[in-house]
Design a protein around this nucleic acid. Structure first.
Lengths: 328, 328
DNA sequence: CAAGAGATGGACAACGTTGTCACGATCAGG
DNA sequence: CCTGATCGTGACAACGTTGTCCATCTCTTG
């Protein structure tokens, strides 16, 4: 900018005015400055600018895994809202690792992002208190923050599984299985809760071997499912607690003679092309991202009200696999 | 930092030294400074730091759509490499819009990112020359840059379709269709070229109604495919030029009585669960991202050699749909 | 013609860091 | 005890902007 000023024969501030289209510059002078800018290929250094103005026009997004389709569409929604507000987006994957989550969040804070959208991996976010006090708007999404009070946008997970299980019950099932992720994960716990509630509502006594929580690797899901399907009281229907479980379940079930009803949690592309088409409880990933981002910018725009908690409904989409009647 | 210095009763620079773990500070002083830091909840402002050091430790990633699984895994790979080099990642979706691409790229440049990974949407990147000259390392991925010489990492698209078509020919097909994306998109043009080459290699005269390039909306693909399957010389096999085409093709073909062989370009989750399982030519999305990011950092680490062009192979994965024999 | 108003332009400090350099204290060797 | 090296520390400028404030110049108006 100094160079531009020298070349145009004007003061530093005048160049700044031209660059920012501030009033008070003769068209003549402005043209001379613009010529110098073009000749030198000058571009304003936003880092320096933002150091001065104390707003970085950027937000940080921390999620579990950018490559997961669910989080990918969530990101995209956050990005769209950020763009509408003229902000750029930092993204980072925590890979379900609390330490990594904290590293990312603090790195973003050190960059002085205006706000954060976080899919928490850990269960203690007290480390964020100084940052939030310092003015970093923060919204949690998909899972609540741990041990601090903060804005959060969630799917109604319990309601979702409740609806899924009720759907199976309505189709005549009583021995219904549930395979969920690690119980430490909030969404997994909530989904289990919904399962229990729906079973209780129907007056069904849940056998311990009907549900399992743990890592959702194909091997483990396969083993767990096999054991649910054998024994004296085999399940006739399964509620799969997440996408990975659903996929493995489809594989396992397609290789078995007796039909088993299946409802998956989380929609996925091509679910309607499988045989049978897979009934799911769908989350609104873009909706989560959009809502979270909107809350963030509302807060940045000054709405300094207390923290709020929004729950988005999950939607049951019947496609076939969830409407299979009990085989015995 | 000023506050910390005051509280600890030391100079500004000493605090800086402690924060950056530079040598030459008595353990005693360091402890005092650290105490002040903790008490004040101080965190270094990286924006200011990077203004001074002229390295932002961040790279910008511009791609077509973050929500697309292909680009999502590409992003993730770029992120992993960036992380290994201690850099943060800005991401933005161009939505296949050249103006938007340019806006994003220039916004990243104004933030003084160290480097850029770009999936180009436009076909003229001369606007980037001043930036590259100014030292912004730039690598294009998935598609080459337009009208400038720059590093690029590509899939061997022509080789991929060539392999796919050859596979169909080996299974007895001669009337083979191809539905591709808009011809202006480099990857689409290359895939068409591979199709033509493979057909020519087999001495097959390609009828004009056997291939079509254009927007890959379900409606259009459906219409085009229907016309390919009718008439005096209907195709007995189809090579789908991208994911969206493949999905629509599966839908259309599953509703028809006569079996039609199908090879899709780009792998997708659950392809093996469909009936029949879908044979694809798979791209290595993480490989593209990883390679591009590695080239970027190699360049940042000083390797100022000429530009290079890397082509990653595409891999044919037979699963069933591509091995269906001709129906007539 | 004097004086006030409005337009135009620039000097300077500040944002929060780090690099450079110089200063004083301590220490080893002669 | 002196000399020179080494160590710890801090003052200061600089990075590239913008906000504040003041100076100048040109009108308009009484």
């Amino acid at each position: 900018m100094k160079d531009v000023a020298a070349r145009a024969g004007v003061g530093l501030k005048t160049v700044s005015r031209v660059v920012n289209e501030e009033p008070g510059v003769t068209p003549d002078t402005a043209a001379r400055v613009q010529a110098a800018i073009d000749a030198l290929g000058f571009r304003r250094n936003d880092s320096a600018r933002l150091l001065r103005t104390r707003r970085t026009a950027s937000v940080g997004l921390v999620l579990e895994d950018l490559a997961d389709p669910f989080y990918a569409s969530l990101s995209r929604a956050v990005e769209d809202v950020a763009r509408a507000h003229g902000a750029l987006l930092f993204t980072g994957s925590s890979t379900e690792n609390p330490r990594r989550e904290q590293e990312l969040v603090l790195a973003f804070c050190a960059r002085r992002v205006d706000g954060l959208v976080v899919v928490p991996a850990g269960d203690d976010h007290r480390y964020l208190v100084p940052e939030i006090d310092a003015g970093v708007a923060t919204v949690f999404v998909d899972r609540p923050a741990g041990r601090i009070d903060a804005d959060v946008v969630l799917t109604d997970n319990a309601g979702g599984t409740r609806a899924g299980v009720a759907h199976l019950i309505a189709h005549g099932h009583r021995r219904i299985g549930f395979i969920g992720d690690q119980p430490g994960i909030h969404t997994a716990a909530e989904r289990l809760r919904g399962y229990r509630e729906a079973m209780a509502d129907a007056g069904i006594d849940v056998r311990p071997q009907w549900y399992a929580m743990g890592p959702t690797t194909p091997q483990r899901v396969q083993a767990v499912l096999a054991s649910m399907l054998s024994g004296p009281e085999p399940v006739t229907a399964l509620l799969a607690g997440n996408n990975r479980v659903t996929v493995t379940a489809v594989r396992v079930l397609s290789g078995r003679p007796e039909p088993v009803a299946l409802v998956g949690f989380d929609d996925f592309e091509l679910a309607d092309l499988l045989d049978p088409p897979v009934t799911v409880v769908a989350q609104d990933a873009p909706g989560l991202g959009r809502t979270a981002a909107q809350m963030l910018f509302r807060r940045l725009d000054g709405a300094a009200t207390g923290t709020s908690r929004v729950e988005l409904p999950a939607r049951l989409i019947p496609r076939g696999s969830g409407e299979i009647p009990p085989s015995s």
